[in-house]
Simulated assay, not measured.
Amino acid sequence: MKHRILIVDDDQDLLLILKESLESYNNSYEVLISGSVQNALIKLQSESVSLLISDLRMPGIDGFTLLTYVNQNYPDLPVIIMTGYPYKDVDRMSYEKGAIGFISKPFKIQELEALIRKTLQKQTEGGTLHDISIPLFLQMIEMEQKTATVRVLNRATEKRGVLFFKNGELLDARLDNTSGLTAAREIISWDDVSISIENSCNLNQRNIQVSLNALILEAMRLKDERPKSQQTTGTETPNLRVTPDKTNKVLTSVQAKLKNAFLGRWIPNASYVDNSWGKMIKSIQEISSSLNFGDLKALYLERKRGLPLAIVPDEEIVVLELDSTCSRDKLLRVLSL
């Protein structure tokens, strides 16, 4: 995945050298250059940027003003200050105003690249996930009461959005020039995505007041209203393929465990092996691992239509069709043993 870096400096020769050097040094970098803060602001509105590097002393609007603007309007965007400013404590002032890195001119390209790499690695410190369900992932963030900045890449359109969580609450979202509820609804409706997790959040104010579940329902409505040509295939609930196999060892083991636990007073309406659930199970296991949930032993699934299901991942995947007489909590405890 390309990391788009915007460098702002009024020295055009330096900009061209940095662009050529960084893109040659690491082919995952795409470097945009801007000779003024005014031009940089235009680029920020039209481009998805992973990192901003700015000089301080420039004609017109200076780097400190740009830094303040970015912190207020793009709170997920890290800023590195590079300067030959001779005044004392300029590095301390940069950090106090929100910069995450500082480098003094002149510098070696290796020094700047190391600082860039360290900064970008922080954006994925909580892991990177592919081919997963955004609603499922966000519900697990909420359940775990996790604080995180979640960056989402729509692989079909290459759009990038950001979701801000603090203690499991969705505070805000950003997508291009939109934020708040509108941005969150659009991001959650995406299918084919990659997700990067940063284990921190710079926001404190909550700008999204609706519940996450209500927002997910609204996003699904938005997705359903799109023309089918604009919809992509993501992690979906598989079509059930009932394939009973009384000789299957995994299935026999699960059936025996249930019989012993419930003393024969309850059995599932149906139990069978269905490995078409593999992709969804893999996604959930990746999410669980990234959030330090531990191993996935069993999954309870409520469905809009049909009976609820219990999914038991093992060497093969066992599916149990349940009914209203089954205690969900007891069933999950038994299956987790």
Rank of each mutant, 00 (worst) to 15 (best):
Leu203Asn: 14
Ala219Asp: 03
Leu171His: 10
Thr182Tyr: 13
Leu129Val: 03
Ala184Val: 07
Met143Val: 02
Arg206Tyr: 00
Lys223Gln: 14
Leu215Cys: 06
Asp131Phe: 01
Arg221Phe: 01
Glu198Gln: 15
Met140Arg: 13
Leu120Trp: 09
Ile141Trp: 03
Lys159His: 11
Leu138Cys: 11
Ile195Ala: 01
Met220Phe: 08
Asp192Phe: 12
Asn202Leu: 12
Leu136Tyr: 08
Gln209His: 13
Arg226Ser: 12
Ile141Pro: 07
Glu186Asn: 14
Ile197Gly: 04
Trp190His: 04
Ile188Lys: 07
Leu215Phe: 08
Asn177Lys: 15
Val210Phe: 06
Thr147Trp: 02
Arg206Gly: 05
Glu158Thr: 10
Leu170Ile: 05
Gln145Tyr: 00
Ile134Gln: 01
Glu125Asp: 15
Leu171Val: 04
Ala183Trp: 05
Leu175Asn: 05
Leu171Glu: 11
Gln205Leu: 11
His130Cys: 07
Ala148Thr: 00
Asp176His: 15
Ile195Lys: 02
Ala173Trp: 02
Leu222Cys: 02
Gly161Asn: 03
Ala148Val: 00
Val162His: 09
Ala173Lys: 03
Trp190Pro: 05
Leu129Met: 14
Ala219Lys: 01
Asn177Ser: 15
Glu218Lys: 13
Gly127Arg: 06
Gly127Phe: 06
Asn202Phe: 07
Gln205Thr: 07
Arg155Ser: 10
Leu217Gly: 14
Asn199Pro: 07
Leu217Pro: 02
Glu198Tyr: 02
Gln205Gly: 08
Ser179Gly: 05
Ile134Cys: 04
Ala219Arg: 05
Arg221Pro: 01
Ala183Ser: 07
Lys146Gly: 00
Ser200Asp: 11
Leu171Asp: 07
Pro135Ala: 10
Gln145Val: 00
Ile187Lys: 02
Ala148Asp: 03
Arg174Leu: 14
Asp192Thr: 09
Leu175Tyr: 12
Ala184Arg: 11
Asp176Val: 12
Asn204Ile: 01
Lys146Pro: 01
Arg226Asn: 10
Arg221Asp: 14
Leu153Phe: 13
Glu169Asn: 13
Phe164Asp: 09
Met220Arg: 05
Ile197Glu: 05
Glu144Asn: 10
Asn199Gly: 01
Ala219Phe: 02
Asn204Ala: 03
Ser194Leu: 10
Cys201Asp: 11
Gly168Ile: 02
Glu142Ala: 12
Leu153Ile: 09
Asp131Tyr: 03
Ile132Pro: 11
Glu225Thr: 02
